[in-house]
Amino acid sequence: MSRTVTANIIRFIGLLLFQTLILNQVELHGVVNPYIYPLFILLLPFETPKWALLFLGFAMGISIDFFTNTPGLHAAASVLIAYLRPVVLRLNKPISGYESFHQPNIGSLGFNWFVFYAGVCITIHHFALFFLESYSFSYFFYTLTKVVASTIMSLIIVIIYQYLFYSKR
């Protein structure tokens, strides 16, 4: 239990710093802005209570907001996926159901399961984030391009991250 808590605290700080000090500094292309910090919410254990998910999602989002001068923006988007995470997990339930030893990662539930889970959550997150950021629908197609391009990039980075830290043991 305490090991899980420690691991998640380290992941929180690690993802926060990686996102703000490294990923945000890399100018790939105007429409490619990957955000991988939602991975913190995605990787929380199955038994995390809903209220804790929401609070942790808010904490992660508002921490990013401090770095990017966007009060409320990342908080709103990550509270949204923290709320929808249980729904996506239910939709994506393996035929035999979740076992007590399962963890929501690639090593435990496989590539296909994880890509669907992370793909849906990151798409929702990026959609909310970029449309809230543009604060209007007047640049609809430009923003939509941003959502699609950034989601693909974020997903690739998230999968690389998973293979680095959760190779099958």
Binding site: K50, W51, F58, G61, P71, G72, A76, Y83, Y135
Partner: peptide, 22 residues
């Protein structure tokens, strides 16, 4: 409905911050 209510509260706080900041 604690989860949904908490979700609403946190989103309202976030949106409040966004609107103020704009």
């Amino acid at each position: 409905y604690h989860a949904f209510l908490l979700f609403l509260v946190l989103e309202i706080v976030s949106f409040g911050l966004i609107v103020r900041h704009n």
